[in-house]
Design a protein around this nucleic acid. Structure first.
Lengths: 105, 105
DNA sequence: CGATATACATCGTATCACGAAGTATAGATT
DNA sequence: AATCTATACTTCGTGATACGATGTATATCG
């Protein structure tokens, strides 16, 4: 899949992945795998960015001797998802414009 | 609308805008305006990129004393649109994942 | 004991959208 | 005649971003 195309989805995907239950980096990657592939470096960049934007909070916890950083969505993060849903309507309009132009020869 | 979100659409939008009939910069911007706003600097960057990728060809013509560069889509450009339609299916799957995660509280 | 999975971090690079600023002409308004 | 607006294309610099490469460290399994 084209990198440019999925760009705008990634942040919201990560937010969606932690929305119902707090999660951590490695798990987020595995959970999202069926929908979008994203590398570790990409994910940690995103998590850092979302944290700076206060769309999530972090809590470090030990799990079987290994450290884990659990991410928790904030109200701002939830709002971001809602905002995305609105933007998605515009996206659909654009996509149908493309399909329309393509159909009439 | 979020810049990142529309990124992947822009190239294909421009291709769609010239598909049924050759067009030129200024007209493309006006034609796309109802769907996506894009500045001149953005458009000309895109046109240059698509030309380099051989997805369109350029022809300069005079129109009432002013120069116009008419853009014509190539077979590769048409294929790019087809490819987009496939990618769009994946995009829809991702968007419904986001909506799903968001709905079950 | 070595391979694999888990878990996180950092650096550098390439791609890209866009604002700003510039050049130039035609037609309308004052 | 002068000014404004629309048309039309160009270039430069910047900030945002995805990602490969590389590194650290531990647990588990064969």
């Amino acid at each position: 899949m084209d990198i440019q195309l999925k760009r705008g989805l990634l942040d919201v995907c990560v937010l969606a992945a932690i929305k119902s239950a707090d999660s951590y980096g490695y798990k987020i990657i595995k959970d999202l795998k069926p929908y979008v592939e994203l590398s570790e470096s990409t994910l940690y960049t995103i998590l850092k960015r979302l944290e700076t934007a206060r769309m999530l909070t972090v809590r470090t916890a030990e799990h079987c001797g290994r450290l884990r950083k659990y991410y928790h969505i904030t109200a701002a993060g939830v709002r971001r998802i809602e905002e995305f849903k609105e933007e998605w309507k515009e996206m659909k309009a654009i996509a149908s414009f493309i399909a329309k132009e393509d159909s009439d020869e």
